[in-house]
């Protein structure tokens, strides 16, 4: 009498080290052997840990290999990949990090991981040609203030209470450099052409950029940023467009503009 195996049972036992071996699994000796099933358990766990290590190299360096692996194992048990596109796996890792007691002393870790998610998204995003700055110069100001931006497919904005752009940059060199300040940063991640770029947006332009990314008009974004006396609409817009942030402008209805 042979037991029928099911993939449900096999799958459930893969990520649960305490689970008994699935029914019907055996060896050439005629009896089951946990050490053999464990090869699959290790393959799954190690390949997914490796996937997270490759996606979050700076987060890993920040907390060290042992702690990172421990976080990765915890995350993997909680969340399986939903797709064979393994570069998409781990988009929920920053939230998992935020919720951990053990990362309290590294409060910026979640945002560093967010920056790494955005980097990977930009790397694989659709190719496109950013809006030429000349198009801004040639647009009637009244139309301009009523327009919003369609960001490049690769472009995202991250606002952090911590200097995570500077921390990320400090880790692109060995040994890791020191970070000169502790304030918040607004980080723009994008791939205008071949390579992914990471920029720190001038502090006074953070609200402007965030309001534009939220789908509001240029006029509305300018008003949202105007409480900071050092904000200057022209240099902010020219700056963002020249970095390749914008795919095109699009009209925004009046209601969104107030």
């Amino acid at each position: 009498m042979s037991a029928a195996s099911s993939q449900s049972e096999f799958a459930a036992a893969l990520l649960d080290p305490a689970a008994t071996l699935p029914a019907g699994v055996t060896t050439m000796r005629g009896s089951a052997d946990a050490a053999r099933f464990d090869v699959y358990r290790n393959n799954v766990m190690v390949s997914l840990i490796t996937a997270l290590e490759q996606k979050f190299p700076v987060s890993r360096k920040l907390v060290g290999d042992a702690f990172f692996k421990q976080m990765a194992r915890g995350f993997i048990r909680q969340e399986r990949p939903r797709s064979p596109l393994i570069f998409q796996y781990g988009d929920g890792f920053p939230e998992f990090i935020d919720d951990l007691e053990t990362t309290r002393g590294v409060p910026y870790l979640g945002d560093v991981a967010r920056l790494e998610v955005l980097w990977m998204r930009a790397y694989h995003a659709a190719d496109a040609t950013p809006l030429d700055i000349a198009a801004i110069a040639g647009t009637d100001p009244e139309i301009l203030v009523g327009s919003g931006i369609v960001p490049m497919p690769s472009a995202s904005l991250l606002r952090s209470d911590w200097p995570v752009g500077s921390i990320w940059a400090a880790h692109q060199q060995d040994p890791v450099a020191s970070v000169a300040h502790s304030g918040p940063e607004t980080i723009l991640v994008l791939r205008p052409q071949a390579d992914v770029r990471v920029h720190i947006v001038p502090p006074q332009d953070g609200n402007f950029a965030a309001t534009l990314f939220a789908g509001k008009s240029l006029g509305g974004a300018a008003q949202a940023a105007s409480h900071d006396a050092s904000f200057d609409f022209g240099s902010a817009l020219v700056g963002l467009v020249s970095l390749g942030t914008v795919l095109r402008l699009q009209p925004i209805s009046e209601g969104d503009n107030s």
Binding site: Q7, F10, A11, G24, N43, V44, P81, R82, P84, I86
Partner: peptide, 15 residues
Amino acid sequence: STHDSAFFNDLLPLP
């Protein structure tokens, strides 16, 4: 490698 929409990133055996 996929069961119940979870992807295991390994080549798993079948009877």
